[in-house]
Amino acid sequence: MSENIDIKTLNGYGTTLAAVINFPPDFDTSKAYPAIVVSHPGGGVKEQTAGLYAGKLADAGFVTVAYDASFQGASTGEPRQLENPHIRTEDVSAVVDYLTTLDYVDTDRIGAMGICAGAGYTANAAINDPRIKAVGTVSMVNIGQMFRNGWTNDVADADAAPVLQMGADARTADAAGKDNPFPLAPLKEEDAPNEELRQAWEYYHTPRCEHPNAPGFMTARSLSQILSYDAFHKAEAFLTQPLLVIAGSEAGSKWMSDDLHQRAASTDKSFHIVEGANHMELYDGEKEVAEAVSKLGPFFTDRL
C-alpha cells in the first residue's frame, strides 16, 4: 500500500517535494513503525530505482518514503534540473522532518538509504543529522569526487579546474537567459565510454527504466556547487551511525564506497560486495537488487 504525498521543505528555498510513502503489510495506524528515507540517483526520480528499493523495504516491515529532489521530477523549484548537492542533502533531512510528524512512525527509529549520488547525499545528511539512526548505501557516488576525479578516480583534483570553469561560464550564460544542460548519464548510446556507462544510457533513455520526469541531465551551473562538494566531509568525526555499504565488485564507482567505509567514524560498519555486479545492475537487476535487499532489510531491522 502506498500514497502520493507532498512534503514542504524548510530549507530556505521554498520547495515542496513530491513523494510516495509506502506502508508495510498489515499496516496499523495505532502502531509505531521504523521508517526509511530512500534517495534517488543524480538525474533519477522516485519512480525508478529509489521507488523499487522503497517498495521492497516496505514489504520488509518499514514505512518508507521515496521522493523527487527539489527542482527535479514532480517536486517544485526553479531552475528545473538544478543539482545543488547541499540542497539535495537538505532534502533528505526534510523527509525526516516530515516523518517526525507522523504518529505511526517511531521517531527514534528513522533510517536512510540511497542509490548512486542519492547514497552520497544520504551519508552527508547522516553526518549532519543525528536523527538518522542507521545508513545504507547502494552503488554509492560522492558526486563531488566523481566530477573532480572521474568515474574511476583517475583525475587529480586540480585537473578538474576546467569543469569548474564550465560551471562559472554557465552561470554567466544563465544570467543572460540561456539554458545550459549538462549530462548526468550519457544522453546517446555512442557517448558512453564503456559498457557500464552504456547501461546508464540504457537505463535512463530506453524502456528499461526511462521516465518522462527524468531527462538525464542537470543544469551546468550545478557544477559550481558540485566540484568542491564532499559528501563525506567530517565523516571521520560525525558519521557514527551504523553503516552498511553495498557495491558491485565490477563497479567503476566502487572506490567511493571504499572511501566512505574507511572514513566513517561508525564502530558498526560493514561492506557487502555483490560479486560480478556493476554499478547499474544494482539499480534494477532482479538478482542484484534481491541480494542488496536481503542485506538491507535485516540491517535496518537490527539497527532501528
Rank of each mutant, 00 (worst) to 15 (best):
E90L: 15
D103E: 14
D68A: 08
Q145K: 12
F27M: 05
H279I: 03
Y33T: 11
T219P: 00
M113F: 09
A277E: 07
F271D: 05
G44V: 03
G285V: 01
E286R: 14
A265E: 07
F238E: 15
G167D: 07
A237Q: 15
A54K: 04
T9K: 07
R221T: 15
Y98T: 01
L282T: 04
L164V: 11
N213K: 14
Y98D: 00
L243R: 08
E250M: 13
D97V: 02
D174K: 11
A66M: 08
S253C: 06
T137Y: 07
L10S: 13
E236L: 03
T172F: 06
R80Y: 02
G77R: 11
S30F: 01
Y204G: 09
K234G: 00
P130N: 13
Y121C: 01
V141D: 03
Q81L: 10
G136A: 07
A231T: 07
G42N: 12
A50I: 13
G297I: 03
Q241K: 11
L296M: 10
T152D: 15
I5Q: 05
I87M: 09
D157Q: 01
N149S: 12
V38E: 03
Y98C: 01
D174Q: 11
L184C: 10
P162W: 08
S270G: 09
P34C: 06
F271Y: 15
E286Y: 08
E195G: 11
G297Q: 10
G77H: 09
I246C: 08
T49D: 05
L260G: 05
G61C: 03
A66T: 11
G61P: 06
A176D: 12
I226V: 14
T137Q: 07
T172N: 05
N84L: 09
G61I: 06
V141I: 14
S224E: 15
E286M: 03
D108C: 00
M280P: 02
G14P: 06
A50T: 12
L57V: 01
A237L: 15
L243N: 08
R198K: 15
K269N: 10
G216N: 03
L82D: 08
A158N: 12
N11L: 06
A161I: 06
I110D: 02
S222V: 02
P79S: 05
V274F: 03
T219W: 00
G111I: 03
V135H: 10
G285A: 02
I127Q: 07
V20D: 14
A290S: 14
I36H: 04
L164T: 14
A220I: 03
V45H: 06
K46Y: 02
M256Y: 03
R208W: 12
S70E: 05
F27T: 02
W151E: 13
T301W: 00
V245N: 05
D159V: 12
G248Y: 10
S294G: 12
R88F: 14
P85N: 01
I273W: 13
K178H: 13
G136T: 11
K31M: 09
D191K: 00
A220D: 08
P162C: 11
V289G: 08
P41T: 10
E202P: 00
S249W: 02
A160F: 07
R131Y: 01
P193N: 09
M140W: 07
H211Q: 11
A247T: 14
A74N: 13
A134I: 05
H261Q: 10
I7W: 06
